[in-house]
Simulated scan of single mutants.
Amino acid sequence: MVRLYTNEITIGYGDRVIVKDLSVQIPDRKITTIIGSNGCGKSTLLKAISRIIPFQSGTVILDGKNISQENTKILAKKMAILPQTPESASGLSVGELVSYGRFPYQKGFSRLTKKDMEVINWALEVTGTACFKYRPVDALSGGQRQRVWIAMALAQETEIIFLDEPTTYLDMAHQLEVLELLQRLNREQERTIVMVLHDLNQAARFADYLIALKDGQVMKAGQSEEVLTPLVLRKVFNIDAEIGKDPRTNKPMCITYNLLKGDRKHEKADDSLYFNLSVNY
Rank of each mutant, 00 (worst) to 15 (best):
residue 144 Q to P: 00
residue 23 S to A: 10
residue 104 P to R: 08
residue 231 L to R: 04
residue 189 Q to E: 10
residue 222 G to R: 12
residue 183 Q to K: 14
residue 221 A to K: 08
residue 256 T to Q: 12
residue 127 T to E: 06
residue 187 R to F: 10
residue 188 E to A: 11
residue 180 E to A: 13
residue 206 F to M: 01
residue 156 Q to Y: 13
residue 8 E to K: 15
residue 217 Q to C: 07
residue 138 D to P: 04
residue 229 T to Y: 09
residue 132 F to G: 00
residue 263 D to E: 15
residue 162 F to Q: 08
residue 84 Q to V: 03
residue 174 H to L: 00
residue 212 A to E: 07
residue 92 L to H: 13
residue 276 N to G: 05
residue 279 V to Q: 11
residue 147 R to T: 01
residue 143 G to I: 00
residue 244 G to W: 04
residue 137 V to L: 02
residue 161 I to C: 02
residue 150 I to K: 02
residue 69 Q to I: 02
residue 99 S to C: 14
residue 205 R to W: 06
residue 4 L to Y: 07
residue 38 N to R: 09
residue 51 R to K: 01
residue 222 G to D: 14
residue 148 V to C: 01
residue 121 N to S: 10
residue 160 I to S: 03
residue 247 P to V: 14
residue 17 V to M: 09
residue 141 S to P: 00
residue 200 L to F: 12
residue 188 E to I: 05
residue 25 Q to K: 13
residue 191 R to C: 02
residue 191 R to Q: 10
residue 87 E to K: 11
residue 133 K to C: 06
residue 280 N to I: 08
residue 266 H to W: 15
residue 171 D to H: 09
residue 200 L to D: 12
residue 16 R to H: 10
residue 135 R to W: 00
residue 54 P to M: 04
residue 162 F to Y: 15
residue 54 P to W: 04
residue 149 W to F: 14
residue 14 G to W: 01
residue 191 R to H: 13
residue 251 K to E: 12
residue 16 R to Y: 05
residue 52 I to A: 08
residue 46 L to M: 14
residue 96 E to W: 00
residue 276 N to W: 00
residue 102 R to M: 11
residue 97 L to C: 08
residue 211 I to C: 12
residue 280 N to M: 06
residue 89 A to F: 05
residue 157 E to Y: 09
residue 112 L to I: 15
residue 234 R to E: 14
residue 171 D to A: 07
residue 118 E to I: 08
residue 255 I to D: 08
residue 165 E to M: 05
residue 208 D to F: 05
residue 153 A to L: 08
residue 175 Q to H: 02
residue 269 A to C: 05
residue 269 A to G: 10
residue 223 Q to Y: 03
residue 43 S to Q: 08
residue 42 K to F: 04
residue 270 D to P: 04
residue 192 T to P: 00
residue 8 E to R: 14
